[in-house]
Structures are given as structure tokens and as C-alpha cells.
């Protein structure tokens, strides 16, 4: 029952993030909405694992969190440099 309530809370929060992604007046609202959405789907998968009695889904949720991170990095790179092939400008750390 508690897991069901938690899942309901996560779904309601997802809808709120979705509204922000839809009407978001500028780019930053939308980036944040997608980031929040990724985190919420990680939580939803984790909660669903406990609802279903298979907490092994936690591993999967962690991998989702990692994947979500890559997308956010790409988006912020695009917004900052307006270019995905941004060079390293002689920085010894390369394009990291």
C-alpha cells in the first residue's frame, strides 16, 4: 500500500514535470524538466521493483541514472557552445 502511494506521488510529480516541459518558456525549464523526469523514472522503476517483490530492479535504476547523465551533458554542451564538435582549445585535459 505504501509503495502504491509512493508510485502515485512519483506519477503526479512526473505530470508536473511534463507540464513544465510542454509550456516551459525557455530552454532551461525544459532541460530541467527532462532531468527531473529521468530521475523520476529511476525512482518509479525502483518503487515498481519493490511493488513487484523484485528489488533487483534497483541495479537497472542505477544504470538509468547514469544514462540520463550523458544526455544532460550533451544538452548543456550544446546550449553552452552551440556546437557539438567543440574543440579542446589546447587544454591538456582534452574535451573532457
Amino acid at each position: 500500500m505504501m509503495y502504491a502511494a509512493a508510485a502515485a506521488g512519483v506519477v503526479v510529480t512526473m505530470l508536473m514535470a511534463l507540464v513544465r516541459a510542454l509550456i516551459g518558456p525557455n530552454i532551461y525549464n525544459r532541460i530541467l524538466a527532462v532531468n527531473v523526469f529521468g530521475t523520476l523514472s529511476v525512482m518509479l522503476i525502483a518503487i515498481y521493483g519493490f511493488v513487484d517483490g523484485r528489488p533487483e530492479f534497483l541495479d537497472l535504476a542505477i544504470v538509468y541514472a547514469l544514462i540520463n547523465f550523458i544526455g544532460t551533458i550533451a544538452v548543456t554542451k550544446y546550449v553552452t557552445f552551440n556546437d557539438m564538435g567543440h574543440g579542446d582549445d589546447g587544454d591538456p585535459a582534452g574535451d573532457i
Binding site: 527532462v34 523514472s41 515498481y48 530492479f57
Partner: peptide, 29 residues
């Protein structure tokens, strides 16, 4: 189109969640 890319990311995340709920964990991955 930037908003469209963001929304398609949301769509994929939701799709992956749906695949987990349908027990297709590898497809979700």
C-alpha cells in the same frame, strides 16, 4: 525543435519504464 528533442527524451524514458513494467528488462535497457 529543441523542445521536441527534450520531449522525445521524456517519451523514451517513459517507454523504457513501460518495458520494465511489462517485464522486458533487456528491451527497456
Amino acid at each position: 525543435l529543441f523542445a521536441v528533442v527534450m520531449l522525445s527524451g521524456i517519451y523514451s524514458l517513459m517507454g523504457a519504464t513501460l518495458y520494465v513494467i511489462l517485464d522486458a528488462v533487456d528491451v527497456a535497457f
